[in-house]
Computed example of a mutant assay.
Amino acid sequence: MKSQTNNVYDTIIFDLGSVLIDWNPRYLYRKIFATEAEIDNFLQNICTPDWNEEQDAGRSLQEATEMLVTSHPAHEAQIRAYYGRWKEMLGGEIPGSVQLLRQLKDSGKYKLYALTNWSNETFPLALVEFPFLQWFDGIVVSGRERQRKPFPSFYQLLLSRYQVDAEHALFIDDNLRNVKAAEAQGIDSIHFVHPEQLKDVLVSKNILN
């Protein structure tokens, strides 16, 4: 990360899932499977992260579901639950992170944007569930744009749409892959671990007191 002062940044870009919003498929599947081992097997071999990312990139939930049901008919009920009971994967907002977002908003010093890998079909539910999403000056949703992190074009889409200068922007994401991709686009970045760590980094950059 660059050594910069608060005079350099005018824009802060947040990831949403696992930074501001606690989303975890295990919250649902702990109600369905008896053991963590069964959940591990299901999420590693059937409803995998790679499969989920295709919905983030614009594949329809119906197409994704039917594809897996065809491939794994013995797990049809569990597969259909993934999107049929998707809201049960939401654990709520991450309070410490939302408080930091509030402080940044209240300071009036920064443009605030979100760049999120999220299905366009489920994102409207999040907009209803989490009012703080209205605090952003703009949100770029991968499923709507049919492209996603870590591909360079997705970062460039936000920069061009909102006329953001990468040299004056700071990006925050829990996925190191996405952080490195942002840095490759010239965007200083923070690898989010937990709200206290994020606060410490923001303070060290003189963005927050």
Results as ranks from 00 to 15, higher is better:
residue 158 L to S: 07
residue 135 W to T: 10
residue 194 H to K: 08
residue 174 D to I: 08
residue 192 F to G: 02
residue 1 M to L: 12
residue 157 L to G: 01
residue 142 S to R: 02
residue 147 Q to M: 13
residue 77 A to H: 10
residue 91 G to Y: 04
residue 173 D to W: 10
residue 91 G to M: 04
residue 86 W to V: 06
residue 151 F to K: 08
residue 12 I to R: 02
residue 165 D to E: 15
residue 188 D to T: 14
residue 155 Y to T: 06
residue 193 V to R: 07
residue 43 L to P: 04
residue 29 Y to P: 03
residue 65 T to L: 07
residue 15 D to I: 06
residue 137 D to I: 11
residue 48 T to H: 04
residue 40 D to E: 15
residue 66 E to D: 14
residue 193 V to I: 11
residue 57 A to T: 10
residue 47 C to V: 13
residue 52 N to D: 15
residue 128 V to Y: 12
residue 202 L to Q: 02
residue 127 L to A: 11
residue 142 S to G: 07
residue 110 Y to K: 08
residue 183 E to A: 08
residue 19 V to I: 12
residue 27 Y to M: 11
residue 27 Y to D: 04
residue 146 R to K: 15
residue 53 E to F: 10
residue 78 Q to S: 15
residue 64 A to C: 08
residue 110 Y to L: 08
residue 147 Q to C: 11
residue 7 N to Y: 11
residue 20 L to K: 03
residue 21 I to D: 00
residue 91 G to Q: 03
residue 201 V to A: 15
residue 187 I to Y: 06
residue 89 M to G: 03
residue 115 L to Y: 04
residue 110 Y to P: 06
residue 172 I to Q: 05
residue 109 K to P: 00
residue 36 E to L: 09
residue 182 A to V: 02
residue 108 G to Q: 07
residue 99 Q to C: 07
residue 98 V to D: 08
residue 97 S to G: 01
residue 190 I to H: 02
residue 17 G to E: 12
residue 180 K to E: 09
residue 209 N to R: 13
residue 149 K to F: 06
residue 191 H to V: 13
residue 31 K to N: 08
residue 45 N to R: 09
residue 207 I to L: 12
residue 117 N to K: 08
residue 169 A to Y: 06
residue 140 V to T: 12
residue 182 A to T: 01
residue 106 D to T: 10
residue 196 E to F: 11
